[in-house]
Amino acid sequence: MAGAAVPEPSGKGKKKALDSVVNVVPFIDLLSCCLAFLLITAVWTQVGKLQVAQAGGQGEPTPPDSKTLVLTLGLSEKGFSLTAGQGAGAIDIPKKGTEFDIPALLDKLKEVKTQFPDQQTITVSPEDSVQYNDLVQTIDACMKMGLNSVTVQAVS
């Protein structure tokens, strides 16, 4: 028992008690201090970051080689518009109701990633009316598919 109580003498008469008392008071003090410190300094919200590059900035993607292609993803009020390669036609992914169709985008990006496994870069080009939440969800979807180098570019 880790209690602070003094054990009662057991047995008869002159035998010394074999039980020794563990003084738990300092241990409780230490635990209380640790608990108070950790509760005060605890971070309850786990905040992260999505690193993006800005078109024309430091992190501008390098020119594509034969194993990669220029991948551009437009966001508008109608939905996504994915352009894979220069001069290629855009693949439209319309919204589902009021929400952007992220699963459909993931499927398309998966196709691209299957054909171009070395592809790391993508340019996300949202319209002015697109909300920050939709932009973040889109970047998150790109990163999920291994397109880690995301460049954000305003629609010209």
Binding site: G48, K49, Q51, V52, G59
Partner: peptide, 9 residues
């Protein structure tokens, strides 16, 4: 130029 968007993990 090194921009990070803050998100909830």
């Amino acid at each position: 130029g090194n921009i990070n968007f803050a998100i909830l993990a």
